[in-house]
Amino acid sequence: MNKILIIAEHDGNEINSSTLKCVSCAKDIESANIDIVICAQDGANITKAASKIDHINSVILIDNEANENMIAAVIAPQIISMSDEYTHIFGPSTTFGKDLMPRIAALLNVNQISDIMEVINAYEFKRPIYAGNAIVSIKTSADKKIVGTIRTASFQDVQANNSAEIHNHEISIDLPTHTRFKSLQTGESDRPDLQTAKKVVSGGRALGSEANFEIIYQLADTMNAGAGASRAAVDAGYVPNEMQVGQTGKIIAPDLYLAIGISGAIQHLTGIKDAGTIVAINKDEEAPIFEIADIGLVGDLFDVIPELEAEIKNQN
């Protein structure tokens, strides 16, 4: 039997859907017995929500005030303290998991498999390298623990109709205090979360200014879509960094992706490869984005967007 521990990502109130993707990956391993661990402060509600996730055996809550801000150096030793019985330890390949999981792997004296995109068997996985320009199959040795991060865009959500057991795990070790949370600055937005939205509208440098980006937001709101941006638009200061889609930003897989005024640099395409339908709107008919778009429209975005918005409103 493969005993798999998944480290839940949450914001103190809700389980992040990246956790569901991890479960989705773990269930592809033969005879998987999956537990979720939640490190939290006052985590009873999150734990209850997690216990509904399908395919899992139990949820383990480590309730500790040191877990208020999910600091990797604080969480890692807690995971180690309960890791003995597990064959696999997985976390999401989000900034949370990327920060935490290698720290756990090093403490267990094993390498980590980053960005797992496919399970071949319990000891062999596929992952992208060179910004997704090559896919490598990695074999691990069966006698060691496997620590991995899960590429969330490669897996579907799992359902939540379960009622898994809930356990508490008490920590009796000293936790480090050398790393202290100060603040978190987030863009306030009521739009669907970029990473989980079924539809995403993204703008590029062609928008020309922060003010002009307003038309992207309006179109996104009309479509009930998340709003994203290319690295160029972020670097130009039109939008905050958390909106960046691409290899160094967020890797997403919405059903519909609208790339507006985005030329399609490799690093951007890496972030949207798993999207269902990609629509490109660009003035330059030679733009590389058209090479991978399912539907392309050559035109000036300042003409196209208002028209598109009006058409969609007409449909509704």
Binding site: N111, A134, V136, T140, D294, V298
Partner: peptide, 21 residues
């Protein structure tokens, strides 16, 4: 510590060019 071994490297699946409207 080489507990990992790459066994095969492949090109990623190719996304076909779609239609223009």
């Amino acid at each position: 510590t080489s507990d990992l071994a790459p066994s095969l490297t492949e090109s990623p699946p190719h996304r076909e060019k779609g239609i223009m409207v």
